[in-house]
């Protein structure tokens, strides 16, 4: 086993363990902290794939902003007993159906991935100016989508303030 495989196995094992902790934990604060670990694991995967800029964005936006937002929301709505804050659904049918559906999706997609012949390109060298290439795309061909994303973020911020504060108090 060479270093490549060892690094990949370590990162993906870490990520999947943290993701399972998000779903299985009974305490929602622990779920949120495991979610931060999952985000960091995905960021490590991005670094491993040579997408350094995206990994940094992942750490900044997900592990920074989104995680803090989720933890603040948890603090605002938490019940006094934290051990029961994240219960599974009371209906066993829904629970088993969800588990079954998730397994079906994973096995189906896994088989599809296994049987597809992918172009067996070795991962080429990473572009030195990857951020520059991304900026060329973002402000060139895809500038309309870029502006639309900016407007979407503005609308989301205004909407979140109005929803959380109450429209009559603005």
């Amino acid at each position: 086993m060479n270093l490549d495989q060892l690094v990949f196995l370590a990162i993906s094992g870490f990520t999947i363990t943290a993701a399972l902790a998000v779903v299985w934990s009974r305490n929602i604060v622990r779920s949120a902290l495991a979610l931060i670990l999952t985000f960091l694991g995905v960021a490590l995967t991005f670094f491993n794939l040579g997408a350094g800029f995206l990994g940094l964005v992942q750490i900044l936006v997900y592990a920074g902003a989104v995680a803090v937002l989720i933890i603040f929301a948890i603090m605002l709505v938490m019940k006094p007993d934290p051990g029961t804050t994240n219960p599974t659904t009371p209906s066993r049918d829904t629970h088993y159906l969800g588990g079954l559906l998730a397994w079906l999706v994973v096995i189906g997609l896994g088989l599809a991935i296994g049987f597809t012949t992918w172009p067996s390109l070795p991962a080429g060298p990473v572009d030195d100016d990857a951020v520059g290439a991304l900026a060329q795309l973002l402000l060139g061909n895809y500038v309309v989508a870029f502006e639309a994303a900016a407007i979407l973020l503005l609308l989301a911020v205004v909407g979140a303030i109005i929803l959380a504060k109450g429209a009559d108090k603005i």
Partner: peptide, 14 residues
């Protein structure tokens, strides 16, 4: 795929 499946299970089971 594994991450997606875990998320899907969470949506149903929580």
């Amino acid at each position: 795929t594994a991450l997606f499946g875990i998320g899907l299970y969470g949506v149903f089971a929580k």
